[in-house]
């Protein structure tokens, strides 16, 4: 009896893994190419951008916040990065320094954008949903303006030079996958085993208790937004070499996919409990659904969004009535 009860209590814990395993089994059954090296690396590399952002989103949501601006922020950072790199190529010529400056710029602007979100939420006391809804519109509009309504493209030679950051790798594993995996491990350790992670959960659980326990609430909350901004920057650094361009539609709906992955992974939307490994599983589930629909013709790929929607709703239903301490 106790094992049965344990299993029922653990259902929210293991449900994302079960779902992932089921998806993989369905994939194997439907298409022999599913487990092929090419397909797996393709799925993982494409998940990496949203995955990296979702890791940061896990901390923000765990601490009781939310950030809707990340997709637009990614597009804006990418656009700015390309614009500056093209300008620098004109004055400095092609070469590694231009790429390094571009990367530094992307990370710096990401951190700054996260800082702006965070400082306005924590110091000016603006509701996270409203504020990031606002900055989402601002960044989206800024990138459209930078691209003059069209597309910003990196110069051909620079693109060739930068390409390996997405397409290259070591031992047959491409860089985005390696970076995603490393950040996921780092994120999981930070969430579970450091004071910062514990403070995030405490603040999300009850901000007043955290404050009375001498946790510096504003600093920790600000740090979650800055961290997310930095991760958006890293995602952009991996994303730009893939297509070498940015436009008004870059990163569209990434924020919702990232939030969905966090929730499917078992992090509570109202804050107080988060797990990075769950988010990674959530990201994989969402991209595998799309991949499966593309590989088979049982269900139309146009229904991708519908199936993802059902998964998100199921995840939230499973989150309810969890009684034990987390």
């Amino acid at each position: 009896m106790s094992t049965l009860r344990n299993m029922r209590q653990n259902l929210p814990v293991i449900a994302p893994i079960v779902a992932l395993v089921v998806l993989i089994l369905i994939g194997i059954a439907l298409n022999p190419n599913f487990l092929s090296y090419a397909n797996i690396t393709n799925v993982l590399a494409r998940s990496a951008f949203i995955g990296i952002i979702a890791i940061g989103m896990t901390f923000v949501i765990t601490a009781g916040g939310l950030d809707l601006s990340v997709g637009s922020m990614a597009a804006f950072v990418a656009g700015l990065m390309i614009l500056v790199m093209n300008l620098l190529t004109d004055s400095m010529g092609q070469g590694l320094p231009v790429i390094l400056i571009g990367i530094a710029l992307a990370l710096g602007v990401g951190i700054l954008a996260g800082f702006i979100n965070g400082i306005l939420i924590t110091r000016a006391g603006i509701e996270a949903f409203i504020l990031t809804l606002g900055t989402m519109g601002i960044y989206r509009s800024l990138v459209t303006w930078l691209a003059d309504g069209g597309t910003l493209s990196l110069g051909y030679e620079m693109r060739e030079m930068y390409r390996p950051v997405y397409y290259g790798g070591i031992m047959g594993i491409s860089w985005p996958i390696i970076v995603f995996a490393a950040l996921a491990i780092l994120g999981e350790i930070t969430m579970r085993h450091t004071a910062f992670g514990r403070h995030c959960a405490a603040i999300g659980s009850n901000e007043k208790v955290a404050r009375y326990s001498s946790v510096s609430v504003t600093r920790v909350k600000l740090a979650t937004y800055v961290l997310l901004g930095l991760l958006v920057g890293i995602a952009v650094v991996m994303y730009v070499p893939r297509l070498g361009s940015a436009s008004a539609t870059t990163g569209l709906l990434w924020e919702l996919e990232a939030i969905a992955a966090v929730i499917i992974g078992g992090t509570l939307l109202k804050g107080g409990f988060g797990r990075v490994w769950g988010t990674v599983v959530g990201v994989l589930i969402l991209s595998l659904i799309g991949n499966l629909l593309n590989l088979t013709d049982v269900v139309s790929p146009y229904l991708n969004g519908a199936i993802q929607g059902v998964v998100i709703i199921l995840a939230v239903v499973l989150q309810r009535n969890t009684g034990t301490a987390r």
Partner: peptide, 27 residues
């Protein structure tokens, strides 16, 4: 309302004010 995190365990509540002293960077 201000003393304890009701949905967290005893351990997490007890050490919250002094987490840094329980090991850094890892608790």
């Amino acid at each position: 309302g201000a003393g304890l995190l009701l949905d967290k365990s005893l351990r997490e509540n007890l050490t919250l004010p002094l987490l840094e002293t329980f090991g850094s960077p890892l608790i």
